[in-house]
Design a protein around this nucleic acid. Structure first.
Lengths: 117, 117
DNA sequence: TGCTTATTTTGCAAATTATGCAAATAAACG
DNA sequence: CGTTTATTTGCATAATTTGCAAAATAAGCA
């Protein structure tokens, strides 16, 4: 009878599993790849071009994202395509972007105030 | 004329700043504290009791959350109260919780299928 | 079958970063 | 002052990240 979205009790294991998701996204290269996958699936070579790192490094980053269940992979011919599996990431990035924008604006305002005599 | 929420280009600095947010939440103690703060402000002693770690450790974790602009602090008498500053966290946690639940259910289903003769 | 391409995995070494604990420090209040 | 609450710092230990190179897989093609 409960139509509201449920949230788990702060169970240890649960929190650790959630923390693993955040941790996986807590690296610029991995977050960049996840953001790119918001638009649709990409193969490893494309992701490598995006982040500009060694392919073995990219592959390892992808393994981290996969083990956190953030992405899924599918082989098509010679290529392996990665897709975003975690829903709600786009929305959350929108809020963090807004927060960052606000921070930048506040800095601007402070500077402006300091410049005024 | 664009009423849709904008998302930044995957600018280097921008992605790094966003990654810092995820990284900050990528630790069980910090995520637990952030989740608790969804309900309202708490002082350091209360948060310490929640995570069960040394107060200096808690303080450092809080400093990490603060430097990522996830929380804000305010002194009231002898106590310092922390509040959640980052909007959208609750929603995102709801989606990650759902994802985790699904994963658990899938494991259950696999086990059940294996048990069936 | 052999050859090529795409991707993963592994091992290693170096650099960076994170962690907890304990002691010192600061800030508010009576 | 003395007490309480919180932050900072120093230190030792552990974990992560990265590049590079080499080996291993796996799929498609001649």
């Amino acid at each position: 009878m409960n139509h509201l979205p449920l949230r788990r009790m702060p169970n240890r294991n649960y929190v650790e599993a959630q923390a693993r998701i955040f941790k996986a996204l807590g690296h610029p290269s991995r977050l960049l790849m996840a953001e790119a996958l918001l638009e649709g699936p990409l193969c490893v070579a494309e992701l490598q071009h995006l982040v500009g790192a060694d392919m073995s490094t990219v592959s390892r980053h992808l393994a981290v994202l996969k083990s956190a269940d953030i992405v899924s992979d599918e082989k098509r011919g010679l290529h392996v395509y990665y897709s975003l599996k975690l829903t709600g990431l786009g929305q959350f990035l929108t809020s963090t972007s807004a927060a960052l924008d606000k921070r930048v604006q506040e800095r601007q305002a402070q500077l402006t105030a300091m410049m005024a005599p």
